[in-house]
Amino acid sequence: MNNEKKCVIVAHGVKKAYREDDRSVQVLKGIDLEVKAGELLAVVGASGSGKSTLLHVLGGLDSIDEGEVTVAGMSVHTLNEVQRGQLRNRKLGFVYQFHHLLPEFTAQENVAMPLIIRREDESVALNKAKAALEALGLGHRLNHLPSQMSGGERQRCAIARAMVTEPACILADEPTGNLDRQTAEAVFDSLLNLAKKQGTACVIVTHDLELAKRCDRTVSIIDGVISKV
């Protein structure tokens, strides 16, 4: 019996350049990366090394110049925009340095939003959102607006929103970068624990090497390519 876990994300020979004035700046110079089901992968590197760009191309949020990215077996950059949006909604979750919660909606409504966009029954979506928030210790914040929550609570709410769809992989860009040390550690633990519980893979960009050590594996982007740490 083969116990080898499947890859949920594969990047092969990925290159990406940006235009700056009249010159081209090569950011990704041939990225090869595999992320297996349930794996927690930290991506580290110097500022400007291309960590966020990597997440954007893995999630189909940015185009690539060469290579291929597959998510759950689907070639992301051969899909049209509608298909990419559907793939992101069903297979990926996103967490950013800033929570990007909608200020006029409660925590529960914010977390339910990806399911409502998917056109799930609203009461079902709200029940799933409640369970996701409770799993992150936010059961007492269901009816609070983002402005009524602390920074750490808002970020855990953003994690719940990313997790509520039970995605194959979470893409997290500096998810604790805007928090103090103690809160950052608590939020990071929340993300890792819930990912492990759900069997969700995570690709986490972080500048914090101590937090990166808590992941299953760490890679570094150096000069536009992936290096093992």
Rank of each mutant, 00 (worst) to 15 (best):
I221K: 10
I117Q: 03
D223F: 00
Q108T: 05
H77D: 05
D121S: 09
S220N: 11
V8P: 00
L126F: 02
R181T: 15
C215I: 06
L211D: 14
R118M: 10
R217V: 04
A37R: 13
K130R: 15
A46C: 12
I116V: 14
D180F: 03
R156D: 15
S49D: 06
G60T: 00
Y18P: 13
C169H: 03
K213L: 03
L92C: 06
I204H: 07
L142V: 11
G152F: 09
T53D: 11
G199T: 02
H56I: 00
G45D: 12
G60N: 00
K36D: 02
F188V: 06
L126A: 02
F98S: 09
R119G: 11
G30R: 01
H12L: 13
Q83L: 06
K196E: 14
V44F: 09
A72F: 05
F188M: 14
V8H: 02
E185V: 08
A11G: 01
G73K: 08
R161Q: 09
N110D: 03
L211W: 12
A162I: 03
V10I: 13
D216V: 02
A72S: 15
N143D: 15
G224D: 09
F94Y: 10
E185K: 10
S190K: 01
T106W: 07
S47D: 05
D22G: 11
V164P: 08
T206W: 07
K213Y: 01
M149H: 12
L28A: 01
S24D: 12
L209F: 01
A17P: 07
L115C: 03
V69E: 04
V25R: 14
C169Y: 02
C157G: 11
V203N: 02
F188I: 06
N110C: 07
D189S: 14
K6D: 06
L41Q: 01
L102F: 14
L41F: 01
T70I: 03
L192Q: 11
L171G: 03
K197N: 11
T176G: 09
N127T: 11
G13P: 09
R181Q: 15
S227C: 12
I117R: 05
V14C: 04
E174W: 07
K29L: 02
Q108K: 13
C215E: 10
A195K: 07
V187A: 07
K6P: 04
E104Y: 08
A72T: 13
E104C: 01
L211I: 12
